[in-house]
Amino acid sequence: MHVPDGFLDAPTSVATGAVAAAGVAIALRRARDELDDRTAPMAGLVAAFVFAGQMINFPVGAGTSGHLMGGALAAVLVGPWAAVLCISVVLLVQALFMADGGVTALGTNVTLLALVGAGVGWLVFRGLQAVLPRHLAMVAPAAAIGALASVPVAATVFTGLFAMGGVAPVEVGTVLTAMLGWHTLIGVGEALITGLVVGSIVAVRPDLVYGARRLLAARELEIRTPASTPEVTA
């Protein structure tokens, strides 16, 4: 879903570039709250992780393959603003070093994958956390549903941009149907992987998962007394 050069007309590309710049500017301020002075090294490493995760392709059907977008995953793991920075940097590196995604479409890609992808994933995740029981076991399912929602929403926003500045005379309805159908399928894959990855991290190091911090902070220190004489094991 990396939009190439020439897919949207120049005015739309410039407009999405402005939106992306504004979003990243806000994220630059807010990410410091999430990662303090560790921001640069931590976000850099997480960006490298997201990039590595995107290298794994999985078959979607009809001979094509999709890969993880990682917006919702990054938002749950490191917080929404840091996630926006991570995904934006991944897209910047891919555009400048790998010619993956056009340089004039960078604003569009940042808007879709970083702002919409991570933003929607995070909002759905937080919304679900407010409703679901406050338990660590609920973090992974909530993250999965956040990821599930983020992909079709990003596809719908893309269709909106296409209706405004698309260069091809295809009916918007046709595009919307194709995009939504395809991306719901991709969203299911994204949801499964996101849920499983978050679940495996919550099981080992819940303290690293930004989305689980509130739950951990609410925990009280519990001192358990052994029921019987403890066996000493090496």
């Binding site: 931590m42 490298a48 992780f49 794994i56 499964l192 992987i193 499983l196 495996s200 080992v204 190091r205």
Partner: peptide, 30 residues
Amino acid sequence: DPRSPRHWPVLARSLGSLFIRSYERGERVH
């Protein structure tokens, strides 16, 4: 086979540990 959805739970655990390794590497670098 990491590509097969049948083995996604294994792949996800690997990605989870890759995240932990990357995060901890970031902390050490910092």
